[in-house]
Design a binder for these strands. Structure first.
Lengths: 162, 162
DNA sequence: GTATTAGTTCGGTTTTTCCCGAACTAATAC
DNA sequence: GTATTAGTTCGGGAAAAACCGAACTAATAC
């Protein structure tokens, strides 16, 4: 019974780990740590248990926990009379996820804006008819980025109130 | 004059390249290729010009062009009486971007759903009061994924008609 | 058919990433 | 203070990623 649950947990850590590796550019063990923290939840998990559960060295766990904390994804708390740290996912993680999305889209917006500027300038200097840069793709892209950003900004408010 | 524009283009390729490297998991040169294609636009660019412009080996360009095509991001066309291939970004790239977003969110949805299942089961077996898993984070996350997915699905329709 | 050039394949090298172990520091329990 | 254990640092090694060059194939121009 207990084994079946643990097995299920491990499978989930692995699955979520691979996802984080692929989509969030995490190192394999870093992804497993983060996945473990997500699945462990608020209660947190100690350094030494991570070392055991993930079968990794202390140094690796230490390094990754630090980068995860530096990126704001992970925090820890302590219990009085217990010097261990209990690591968990930063409380307002969902808000963070939304902000990360917005950041990424903003960066893209800036780049495509600059590309448009560049292409306009190039077109104005170009003399060969029919050889101009088209701007539609970039303009549509900007439009899309605005819209999807707005949608997430709205969700930020709504979900905060939930 | 021409130099100034070329300089600007190179800067943009570099900037967009780094973005693709970081956010889209591309290899450095792969990212530069893709960036070049985006900035070159519909007219496309030949294999040999990529080799020259990016100062890379034919083999590397070849390999990356193939993976980029395999992932559906890049296509090519030919001109009659010219055996070179002209590579460019796949025409409906924006639609593709939206689909990639939806895919990613779907994957996350599935994983978090399974985590919820797991935690419910664990809670039902748990006897220690106050030691249950909380589900709010995951439930909010699912809600958010649904909403943002819906927003993008709407945009898919609207922007297609644009 | 032949020459030429576009593009591919594959083995190998360089570079980077990832992780570990051992020695170390820091904190607290006693 | 001293012992113990939590956590860190750093040098190095293994593994993976990225790129290249040389030899090759394929296509077309002539």
């Amino acid at each position: 019974m207990q084994n079946e649950l643990t097995e299920r947990k491990n499978k989930l850590v692995e699955r979520l780990g691979i996802f984080c590796e692929n989509e969030d550019n995490m190192a394999p063990l870093e992804a497993r740590i983060f996945a473990t923290l997500i699945i462990t939840g608020k209660g947190g998990i100690t350094f030494e248990k991570l070392v055991k559960d993930l079968n990794a060295s202390k140094s690796t766990i230490c390094t990754h926990l630090n980068t995860l904390q530096a990126s704001g994804r992970v925090s820890y708390f302590t219990k009085p009379g217990d010097r261990k740290r209990y690591f968990n996912v930063t409380p307002n993680r969902l808000l963070q996820v939304m902000n990360e999305m917005l950041d990424k889209w903003n960066k893209q917006y800036d780049i495509h804006s600059e590309i448009i500027e560049y292409k306009k300038e190039a077109n104005s200097q170009n003399t060969i008819v029919g050889d101009e840069f088209e701007l539609q793709f970039h303009e549509k892209y900007l439009l899309f980025l605005e819209e999807v950003s707005n949608a997430v900004k709205k969700l930020k408010k709504n979900i905060a109130e939930l």
